[in-house]
């Protein structure tokens, strides 16, 4: 009789242990999910590279270097489209990555603009 009671208790303890383990696993999974959602949200924010914003940005840089806007517009649109396509192919890109890519693509058209993008954020 005592043996059967002990067995029952042991089974009960095992069940409680299993339940606790499952709850721990669920809590961990919830945490992981929240973390993954945060990372996803950040990635989405980073890959939202607008072509029109890039065009505006490059034209502003061109103006600061005294490059004729009409002349710049010819290649700025091409570069902006290329960079935008390049960025949208990736899950996560940073501002520095985009500047590097612009520098690379624009170097064929204007060396000074390429230099500006290469050195962005590295002046002080």
């Amino acid at each position: 009789m005592f043996v059967s009671k002990a067995k029952a208790l042991k089974n009960k303890a095992k069940a409680i242990q299993k339940k606790a383990q499952t709850e721990r696993k669920i809590a961990q999974a919830t945490k992981d999910l929240a973390k993954a959602e945060k990372i996803k949200a950040r990635a989405i924010r980073n890959i939202a590279v607008s072509e029109s914003e890039l065009v505006k940005d490059i034209l502003r840089e061109a103006k600061s270097l005294g490059i004729e806007q009409d002349e710049a517009k010819i290649y700025v649109k091409i570069v902006a489209r290329k960079v935008s396509d390049w960025a949208n192919e990736r899950t996560e890109v940073t501002r520095r990555d985009i500047d590097g890519q612009i520098s690379k693509d624009i170097s064929k058209y204007n060396a000074d603009l390429a230099f500006i993008y290469k050195n962005r954020g590295k002046i002080i």
Binding site: R60, E61, K63, S64, L65, G66, I116, I123, I124
Partner: peptide
């Protein structure tokens, strides 16, 4: 020392574009 020059360069750069 270079900070004054660097900051002025940034100001020039930003202002000439706008």
């Amino acid at each position: 020392l270079q900070l004054g020059i660097g900051a002025l360069l940034l100001l020039y750069h930003a202002s000439l574009g706008k």
